[in-house]
Amino acid sequence: MNRIRLLDHLVLMLGVFVMVAPVVVAFMTSTHEAADIHRNGLSLAWGGHFTETYNTVLTREGGFTGKITGARMIWNSLILGIGFAAGKIVLSMLAAYAIVYFRFRLGTLFFWMIFTTLLLPLEVRILPSYEVMNRLSLTNTYTGLIVPLLASATGTFFFRQFFKSVPEELLEAARIDGAGPFKFFIDVLVPLSRTMIAAIFIIMFVYGWNQYLWPTLMTTDERFFTLVRGIKQILLVWVGSNIPDYNEAFALAILAMLPPVMIVLIFQRWFIKGLTESDK
């Protein structure tokens, strides 16, 4: 028994090592100077330039306009991530509510139409979407960044399955208790979906946070650059004969990781509940 447990732990430790080691390496390397990194490669030792590097990354005004800081990019990423996740949840809950609780004609057909779009990644429609946003002159706005991505087949599907598992009697009891469709949604369905909402929020936030192609396409104005895009920007210097600021790129990567990690930590209790048990 003990030996089996030891083996279990070894497997787990191996897993932890594989997952965490690159992050540790990235963090340690980020505390060295760019020239050091260029000469010696990655490093596992503490470089001693932690405050400097991270301070520079967060507050130095850079870019073509000379006004863009790392903090600004984090802010943009947060707006995109949260707006994206919250918008998707609202939209897909309403869509699922309509599909499950209102018997309108062709409802099932519409659901399957939405569902099949699951098969199409964003990249398939990225040019038409860009064109639409461009004509609406919504490029370089938060609206343009967020709105076209809100329709979510995944979210609609999850909420549909969840609503279907809510006992019919609950709706009937609410009807007899005098709750109309809107009240039932707000007073009963939304509170019941809390864990589900948390789970989808995490997934969607991380997804939105990590968007690269769409923000790259939609924003030419540096003020709207997201963090993920900013990392790329630093390495672009390579084109010249400068040594790229490896330390800053690593620091930004570490910073880019933090918010999703925190979101997961905060919501994880609900997240697991939402995906495994139903609170009914």
Binding site: P167, E169, L170, E172, A173, A174, D187, V188, P191, L192, R194, D279, K280
Partner: peptide, 10 residues
């Protein structure tokens, strides 16, 4: 109702 249909979150 048979399964009570109480609102579980209230």
């Amino acid at each position: 109702f048979q399964n009570y249909a109480l609102y579980p979150h209230m």
